[in-house]
């Protein structure tokens, strides 16, 4: 690995960390601006001003904002995200339990949609202009224009209400069997994959087509290379960076998608936790959730950038 490459990768990581810091400021600031007050929310409208003030002091809400930000950030860095104002439980534990089930959902979606999307995108590009390519194009265009809440609602209508194959809500008992688990996640996975796949197909197809029209691919064809060899040896090594970015962007879109899908299916994930916490004004949980979302997003994008840098022969063999 060349020195230039190391500095470039280090630069990307630093930018990601700086972004995370900036986002933490924004998240903290934004939650300060939200109307309403946790103490008021907990005690209800009929509480006396003295009781509210007492609770505010007990919760540490009356300290200056800078001091509270520093304490919060310090806590985050040491793994202590504070205590939920509502359930009085550590935020870290709450988030971890929910994050793991969200990651499981996202993992299944990625495991299905990435191979599917890459296969569709690459084959559509190879047979550009064919009936197959046009069919993929029409289906993806239609799919990408349907919002996921509609897909989710339609799925519930068809598979839960009419066919009654699957449960409408993804409620899982602690000791769920694999089959129960599969039945529970089938519809959330389906709704999320629908949107994610289409984006990846379109971006992969565009990247592969760009490489397919390059002179070195024509040269390979004129050397007698078979279509499979052209794609595997000549096109894909040059599209790794672009495809990694397409995958990262699509997967990061999952983060937004889970909020809607988890809410519709009542799936016990981190997005559901965040939505519930916002309605309860449970600020420590909301803030921590927001930081987790941002961190996952940055992780994906930074990984894609690093893959792109690593796959660039001009940087690898400077």
């Amino acid at each position: 690995m060349s020195r230039r490459m190391v500095t470039m990768i280090a630069g990307r990581v630093l930018v990601a960390l700086a972004t995370l810091l900036f986002v933490s400021v924004v998240v903290f600031g934004a939650t300060q601006l939200l109307p309403g007050d946790v103490a008021q929310a907990i005690l209800g409208q009929s509480a006396t001003p003295e009781a509210v003030a007492g609770l505010r002091q007990a919760l540490g809400l009356d300290a200056p904002a800078i001091q509270r930000f520093a304490a919060w950030l310090g806590g985050l860095l040491t793994g202590d995200a504070g205590v939920s104002l509502v359930s009085r439980q550590p935020v870290g534990g709450l988030i971890w339990a929910r994050l793991s089930s969200s990651l499981l959902l996202a993992g299944i979606v990625a495991g299905i949609s990435v191979p599917l999307a890459l296969t569709l995108g690459i084959t559509a590009a190879v047979w550009r202009g064919s009936l197959y390519d046009r069919a993929v194009g029409v289906v993806t265009i239609s799919a990408v224009s349907i919002p996921e809440f509609l897909v989710a609602t339609l799925a519930v209508l068809i598979f839960a209400v009419h066919l009654q194959w699957l449960p409408a809500l993804s409620f899982m008992p602690r000791s769920a069997s694999p089959l129960q688990f599969l039945r529970a996640v089938a519809m959330p996975v389906m709704s999320l994959s629908f949107v994610v796949v289409t984006q990846m197909v379109r971006m992969t197809r565009a990247a592969v087509i760009e490489a397919m029209t390059s002179p070195y691919v024509e040269m390979a064809a004129l050397k007698g290379a078979s279509p499979a060899r052209i794609v595997l040896r000549h096109v894909l090594p040059n599209t790794v960076g672009a495809i990694a970015n397409a995958v990262a962007l699509s997967l990061s879109y999952l983060l937004g998608g889970v909020i809607i899908v988890e809410t519709i299916f009542n799936y016990p994930g981190i997005a559901k936790l965040m939505v519930d916490s916002v309605s309860m004004r449970d600020m420590p949980v909301v803030q921590a959730c927001a930081i987790v979302f941002c961190a996952v997003y940055l992780l994906l994008v930074t990984c894609a950038d690093i893959v792109a840098i690593l796959s660039n022969p001009r940087l690898r063999h400077a």
């Binding site: 002179p215 024509e218 040269m219 000549h234 090594p237």
Partner: peptide
């Protein structure tokens, strides 16, 4: 080909 620079695959 005319442009050797473009006719070689940069990744190999």
């Amino acid at each position: 080909a005319q442009s050797a620079a473009a006719s070689f695959n940069p990744a190999r």
